[in-house]
Write a protein that binds this DNA or RNA. Structure first.
Lengths: 223, 223
DNA sequence: ATCGTCACTGACTATTGAGTCAGTAAAAAA
DNA sequence: TTTTTTACTGACTCAATAGTCAGTGACGAT
């Protein structure tokens, strides 16, 4: 039946991973299919055996990226129980994921954003994908807040504004990554994040004084 | 001496403005010099009489953009005296400038950011320009805070963290614009900004109760 | 052994777009 | 009017690259 067996699924994964890498370094427009093929160790023609176009390949690569982020986040949150600590872990994970340790991540993020903004962008008609991705994280955060309220750890009043607050936090986090990236050592990420967490910790818990915030930060962030 | 008189300076401005418009709609990579020439109502060759390359033209267009932003912001702040109201005006102006009223603005911003992130980007070696632009706004904001302290309106303790706080606010504002752009009506900008301003107004002034924050917001934002 | 099929290749085509430059026009100077 | 200088033009070159396809070879089936 199949004279030359190849694990198509595995190879698709490899090509997608190579594409993700190249796209993250060059951006969609500047990345060439030849470069992606080279990164995957195959010829250009082969790429087209697995994907019908550069555009489809890009979308697939982005989907993988989003999926990996959410899986890793969920995994990390599984190990934490206390609501405030969960919140801090969420923030820490988001920051770390977009930090220097993952150099390509930011490139990809900007590319996604630009491609969904421009009329001619690949994501112009697929903005909803980017939105889903943002709303996904926001949902996780809202749940952390509501869980904190229902367990009697956070102020009851938080429940009313949980989504507004979660959205606010998300906006800050993404803005912080952006500023850190551009202004580099003019934006002290640990200092900024700590400052913000201290602010949150001052009005979220019913009994703020029960928490040693600096200790929690030291425990959860930049270990 | 000069047989055919043309105001070179004026024409340079026109070309730069046309370029800014096209770049903001297409992004750097996808914008063509032909399109820019057409937008300026001239032939491609003429563009090269005024700028030696697409790259130089892009940088010039961005510089104009940054300058216009700062000038307009400074102008707006001149009309406001009260420190908290100045802060709210600053926030309002930043938000409005990046809102739907200025559709191209966001396109340009993302382009700047991406071009300064990517190794191959036009701004890769000119990241400092983008940084200067961000630090410029931050400086204005820091001065508003310090002015508020020295006039005895803001808590004295703010002075110690003025720059950290200003940086925090900037991060939030840019993150908010970003989220608003992507998630559209899932991100209620007035609600989010009001929420954030109320938070600031609760710990910045020495006498928070003296201010009717909702009234100030209604006065200064989305008039 | 040889045949058929799948996986892959990379030279090729077609297109796009940055940058050039010989030529044109227009206006002031002579 | 003729000459000279400047401004501008747009067809051209050249390089890059998305996508194609005829050909190659590897491997299992017979």
């Amino acid at each position: 039946m199949s004279p030359k067996y190849v694990d198509k699924k595995q190879k698709t994964k490899e090509i997608t991973a190579a594409a993700l890498h190249v796209f993250s370094q060059k951006g969609y427009a500047a990345a060439s299919v030849d470069q992606i093929a080279a990164a995957a160790g195959i010829a250009k023609g082969t790429v087209y055996e697995y994907y019908p176009s550069k555009e489809k390949l890009y979308v697939a690569a982005i989907m993988v990226f989003v999926q990996e982020f959410e899986e890793a986040l969920t995994l990390r949150l599984k190990t934490v129980d206390d609501p405030l600590l969960r919140l801090i872990s969420f923030i820490g994970f988001s920051v770390e994921f977009c930090s220097q340790e993952n150099p390509g991540v930011i490139g990809i993020l900007f590319d996604i954003l630009q491609q969904s903004m421009l009329d001619t962008g690949v994501f112009a008609k697929k903005k909803y994908l980017v939105r889903e991705m943002m709303l996904g994280s926001r949902k996780i955060l809202t749940d952390i807040l509501l869980d904190g309220v229902s367990r009697g750890v956070f102020q009851a009043s938080i429940a009313r504004n949980a989504e507004t607050l979660a959205t606010n936090i998300m906006a800050f986090l993404d803005g912080a990554s952006l500023h850190h990236l551009i202004t580099e050592n003019y934006f002290k990420m640990p200092q900024q994040i700590s400052h913000y967490i201290r602010l949150l910790a001052s009005f979220l818990p019913k009994t703020p004084n029960e928490y040693d915030v600096d200790e929690l930060i030291a425990q959860s962030l930049w270990r």
